[in-house]
Simulated assay, not measured.
Amino acid sequence: MLILGSDSRDDGETASRSDVTMLARIDPDKGQVDLISIPRDTMVTIEDQGRQKINAAYSFGGASGAVDAVSTFAGVPITHYCEVHFDGLQRVVDELGGIWVNVPESFDAGNGGMSFNAGNQRLNGAQALAFARERYNVSGGDFGRAQAQRLVVQGIIKQVLASPPGQLPGLVSSLASSISTDLSVTDIVALAQQFQATDFTLYSAVCPSYSFTEGGVSYACPMFNEWRDMMCRVDAGLDPNDTTAEIPQAQSSNLKLGAASNSPAPKSYDALVANAGLTTNDVAPEE
């Protein structure tokens, strides 16, 4: 499933870039969800548009364009999508009565003039939005922002699943008015009920990437080998971040997984990573 966060808002702004691009693998039988961020500036080639950042796929082709770009980049079929705008995110969080987030570092957010202290805390809608949008005052820059976005999504998922079973259908129906998705309310309720009946596991990761500038344009470029290994682990239902895990034959022989075949980024990148201004390893560690 593709999770998109657009900067299109109800205040009259017409811009529509997918500032959040997140791949979710959902396994209700095992009670497992994997959230994998794709940095918004990831260098890809888009049909008829040439070299672009992956968030431009949404501008050119809407949700279906973004699905196509991420599916090719990750090497997996994407069967569903969910899209939320800035105002929608704020409403969702407030509808839940706030969400619990373990903020990894203290910082002042330029968006909304808010300040955050490191540690586990309940955020309201405005706070969650400011936290998820900040990239200038956090470790890792835009990679740090992607980390915050996953933490907010995790908080929303956990808060929904913590609701009493009898209240779940009404809650999901109310939240659905703030998002766009191809799933019906009935589908979402059924998934949530399955997860409530399991020992829920949620993994969080990001496509291993580094900052790169070409022709005066800033990109995020994938570390191809590391990305392929991560997607093999994701597809196998393993911890995406466990680099010691043995990849099963079914995944290691699938050359599409994590191939990033639509990325023209440098295939030889060790020296580029060593000298990059930022990498995905530069974010603040999560507790």
Results as ranks from 00 to 15, higher is better:
219 Y>C: 05
277 G>I: 05
250 A>V: 15
5 G>F: 00
270 D>C: 09
66 A>C: 04
101 V>A: 04
120 N>A: 13
222 P>A: 06
157 I>A: 09
207 C>S: 11
125 G>E: 04
127 Q>L: 01
119 G>P: 08
91 R>S: 08
57 A>T: 06
283 V>C: 13
115 S>H: 15
88 G>K: 02
227 W>N: 15
34 D>K: 09
109 A>R: 03
90 Q>T: 14
41 D>A: 06
247 I>A: 05
118 A>T: 12
256 K>D: 14
67 V>A: 02
20 V>W: 07
90 Q>R: 15
252 S>A: 09
33 V>R: 00
78 I>P: 11
39 P>N: 06
25 R>Q: 14
122 R>T: 03
250 A>Q: 14
167 Q>L: 03
147 Q>G: 01
184 S>E: 00
214 E>S: 10
238 L>Y: 07
212 F>V: 11
231 M>P: 09
11 D>Q: 13
177 S>L: 08
187 D>R: 04
39 P>Q: 02
248 P>H: 08
40 R>Q: 05
210 Y>D: 04
161 L>K: 03
209 S>T: 14
229 D>E: 12
116 F>N: 06
133 R>F: 10
70 V>K: 05
101 V>Y: 12
41 D>G: 11
254 N>S: 03
214 E>D: 13
269 Y>I: 11
150 R>N: 03
50 G>L: 01
270 D>H: 13
285 P>K: 07
256 K>M: 10
179 I>M: 14
193 Q>N: 09
78 I>H: 11
76 V>L: 05
17 R>L: 15
12 G>F: 07
273 V>D: 03
225 N>H: 13
270 D>I: 13
216 G>Q: 10
7 D>Q: 11
239 D>E: 05
252 S>Q: 09
194 Q>G: 02
80 H>E: 05
2 L>P: 09
259 A>K: 06
265 A>R: 01
33 V>C: 01
84 V>N: 08
242 D>Q: 03
152 V>K: 07
49 Q>N: 15
84 V>F: 08
271 A>D: 13
55 N>I: 00
261 S>T: 15
87 D>I: 00
96 L>D: 02
108 D>P: 05
104 P>A: 06
42 T>F: 07
210 Y>I: 05
208 P>I: 06
5 G>V: 07
102 N>S: 14
106 S>K: 04
144 G>A: 00
140 G>S: 08
120 N>R: 15
207 C>T: 15
5 G>N: 10
21 T>A: 11
186 T>R: 10
283 V>H: 12
148 A>I: 04
6 S>T: 14
37 S>W: 00
